[in-house]
């Protein structure tokens, strides 16, 4: 016969309840810390939550697949949240329409730099071709980035990791970087972080300013299309 406590553990790991609860609890703690830190960029709620959940998984010897069976309900909401970006977009549509020309210019310049600069660095380190392919679309939202990599014959799993890390780096550096540059235009700041660091950068932008969040959301969509067009061209020319 199974021991009682072990039977309970087996029961809990088979349903989504345990890991859904852990995910929400970790975020509640992380968001509280971030709020108490006055939304300081280093107290990033994604980063803190990931560290907390990661710690629990390691300590309990839990596989990621088991964890994801519960966490998938949260993950699923990324799609609806993307649709919801229409709300601030509609609310601020007058500013958005007025900013069309600077946005498109920043889109072209930023999109090319995002792909070429990443390629340039890994190429300078002498990395193999597969790594070049996997890093090229790292600034766009994970689903699109992975399908670009796959179409170019690269490893989508590596791309997924690079995309998430790019999001976290952007969310951490954007505020101090923009302050250092003396940029006070929240349209420009938001657009830049959405373009460079997709949704994780956009989450940061919404913490700072609603207009920044709006422009970051627009940049996610535009850069997904732009990168899908640019990356095959740049890779073809590079290799």
């Amino acid at each position: 016969m199974m021991r009682q406590d072990f039977a309970l553990w087996v029961y809990l790991t088979q349903g989504p309840l345990l890991w859904l609860t852990v995910t929400l609890a970790a975020y509640a703690v992380a968001d509280g810390l971030s709020l108490r830190a006055g939304r300081h960029p280093v107290a990033n709620p994604v980063l803190i939550s990931v560290a907390l959940v990661g710690g629990v998984l390691v300590a309990s010897g839990t596989e990621y697949a088991t964890y994801f069976a519960g966490a998938q309900f949260v993950h699923f909401l990324l799609g609806p949240a993307t649709v919801a970006l229409a709300l601030p977009l509609w609310e601020h549509r007058a500013v958005v329409r007025r900013s069309a020309v600077p946005m498109l210019a920043a889109l072209v310049a930023g999109s090319v730099v995002a792909a070429v600069s990443a390629l340039g660095v890994v190429w300078a380190f002498g990395a193999p071709e597969g790594v070049l392919v996997a890093i090229a679309p790292k600034s766009v939202t994970a689903g699109v980035a992975m399908s670009i990599t796959e179409a170019q014959g690269g490893d989508p799993a590596l791309t997924a990791v690079l995309v998430i890390l790019t999001g976290m780096i952007g969310a951490l550096v954007v505020t101090p970087l923009m302050d250092a540059l003396g940029i006070r235009d929240y349209r420009a700041r938001g657009f830049a972080v959405g373009l460079a660091s997709h949704g994780i950068g956009t989450a940061r932008a919404f913490q700072v300013d609603p207009v920044a969040g709006t422009f970051a959301g627009i940049a996610i969509g535009l850069n997904a299309v732009m990168t899908a067009v640019i990356v095959p061209v740049v890779l073809g020319w590079w290799m």
Binding site: T23, A118, V131, I200
Partner: peptide, 30 residues
């Protein structure tokens, strides 16, 4: 919005070994 990236973020922590061979080049590049 931040909450929704937690499951994918946790996946990255578990898969950091895909970076192993080229970790320096990839970190600098990112």
């Amino acid at each position: 919005l931040s909450l929704l990236f937690v499951p994918a973020g946790v996946g990255v922590v578990g898969n950091l070994d895909v970076l192993a061979a080229e970790w320096l080049a990839l970190s600098v590049a990112l």
